[in-house]
Design a protein around this nucleic acid. Structure first.
Lengths: 212, 212
DNA sequence: GGGAAGAAAGTAATTAATTGCTTTATTTTG
DNA sequence: CAAAATAAAGCAATTAATTACTTTCTTCCC
C-alpha cells in the first residue's frame, strides 16, 4: 500500500556505499559539532538511517572513527602532495601545498576539529596513530622540500629546516585557530596568502648580493 | 576513637579553598586526559571528595568549567604580559612573551587541550567566550608590540602586522601540536628559541645598509 | 568562657537521562 | 516465498545532579 516515503532515494544500498556516505556525513557533522559529542544516533540520522542500522556497516563506533581518520588522511595527503608535485621550484611547491591545505580545510571545516580531537586523546588508538603518522609524513615532506630549495638556491642555506617545518604547520594551525575564534572559516583562503608570504620571508634567500 | 585518617588535612574546608583546589585538579587532570571525558567523579576523587560533595562548591559542571577557563585566562595573561613589560624594545618583549608562554604551557601541559577543547565546542557558552576573548586580547597585544617595534626601528616597516600576529600564535600552536604528536611536552622549552628565531627572521629589519 | 543552635561541608545512595550496542520484528527485493 | 536489509524496541553501563542524612565548624547569648 504505502509506497516509499523517500521516492528518489533507493532504500537499500550496498555496505560500500553506506560506508562512504557515513564517513562523509561524519566529516560534515564535525563542521558544526564537537566530534566527542557525536552520537551514533545523530550520525545515522544524517545518513538517513536508524541508529541500529549503522552497525550493519561498521562493527562498532571505534572502527567507524578509524575509517574516518583513514579517509581524512588519504584525502589530505593526496590532494596536498599532488599540488606540490606540479612545480619544479621547491619554494613554489611549498606555497602550493600551503594553499591547497588551507583550501581543503576550508572545504571541510570539521577536519581540524577531527584531527585535533584525535590528538587530544591520550590513548594510542588506531585513529590517533593514523593522524599522527599523517602529520609526521607531512612534516618530512616539508623538510625535504626545504632542503631541495636550499640545493636549488631559492632558500637560504643556513636555515633550521626542522624548525621551519614546525613553523609551516604552525602557520596553518594559527590560521585555523584564528578562524575558530572569529567563527568564520570561510575567509581562511582569503587570509592564507598573506600568512604564507610572511612565513616565506623567514627563510627567503636575501638578494643582497649586488655583485653586478 | 579512630583519629583523623589524614592528620595534616582538616577534613572540612571552606568553599573558597575547595574551589581553587578543584580548579587546579582539573588543570592537572587535563594533562593526562581528554577534558571532554572528565567526569565529576574523577575530579572529586582527585580533590579527595565524594562526587556529590563537589556540588556543594559549584552549582553545576558548566560553572566549574567556567571557573577553570577564568583561571587559565588570568594566569596566562598575567604571567605572559608581565614578562613582556620587562623590556623596552618591542622585539625583545615579543621574544620574552613567546618563551614565557611556552614555559607556562610546559608547566601546565593540559592547558592547550583545555583551550582547544573549548574552542571546538560550537555552542557559545561562557567558558568558550572567555577563551576567545583571551586570544583576541593576546593578538591585539602582539599587534601593538609589532607596531611599537616599527616605530622603534627594530622591525621592518612594511610588515603585515595582522598576519604576523596570527603567525606568532601559530608558531606556538605548531610547537604544541608537535609536542602532542611526539608525545613529549617536556622538550617544548628546548625547541622554542629555535622556532622564535626563525619567526623573528620574517620581520627583522634587514641590516643591509652598508653605508659605512 | 561554655554550651546550645544553626550554618557549612561532608558522605552514600538514588535519580533521570543518555550512551553504545544488541536483539527482535518488519519490510523490501529477486 | 525466502533471503537480505531495515526499523524499532530493549539492555547494561555511565553520566550529572539530587536527596536524605551525618559530621564539623562558627556564632551568639547568658
Amino acid at each position: 500500500m504505502a509506497t516509499a516515503r523517500t521516492p528518489d532515494k533507493r532504500p537499500y544500498q550496498s555496505t560500500e556505499l553506506r560506508q562512504s556516505a557515513t564517513i562523509e556525513a561524519v566529516v560534515q557533522l564535525c563542521a558544526e559539532q564537537d566530534p566527542a559529542t557525536l552520537t551514533t544516533a545523530r550520525i545515522a540520522d544524517e545518513v538517513g538511517l536508524s541508529q541500529g542500522a549503522l552497525f550493519k556497516h561498521f562493527p562498532n563506533k571505534n572502527r567507524l572513527w578509524e575509517s574516518v581518520a583513514g579517509w581524512v588522511s588519504g584525502q589530505l595527503t593526496s590532494q596536498v602532495f599532488r599540488e606540490a608535485d606540479r612545480h619544479e621550484q621547491a619554494d613554489q611547491s611549498l606555497e602550493a601545498m600551503f594553499l591547497a591545505h588551507v583550501g581543503f580545510i576550508s572545504r571541510h571545516p570539521g577536519i581540524p576539529r577531527l584531527m585535533l580531537g584525535e590528538l587530544q586523546k591520550p590513548s594510542n588508538g588506531p585513529a590517533k596513530t593514523i593522524v599522527r603518522q599523517t602529520l609526521v609524513r607531512y612534516r618530512k615532506k616539508v623538510v625535504g622540500l626545504l632542503q631541495l630549495g636550499i640545493e636549488q638556491g631559492h632558500i637560504a642555506a643556513g636555515i633550521d629546516t626542522e624548525a621551519a617545518a614546525v613553523l609551516y604547520l604552525g602557520a596553518i594551525q594559527g590560521l585555523v585557530v584564528q578562524g575558530m575564534v572569529s567563527g568564520e572559516m570561510a575567509t581562511l583562503e582569503q587570509t592564507a596568502p598573506r600568512i604564507f608570504k610572511l612565513y616565506a620571508a623567514s627563510f627567503q634567500e636575501i638578494p643582497n648580493d649586488p655583485k653586478k
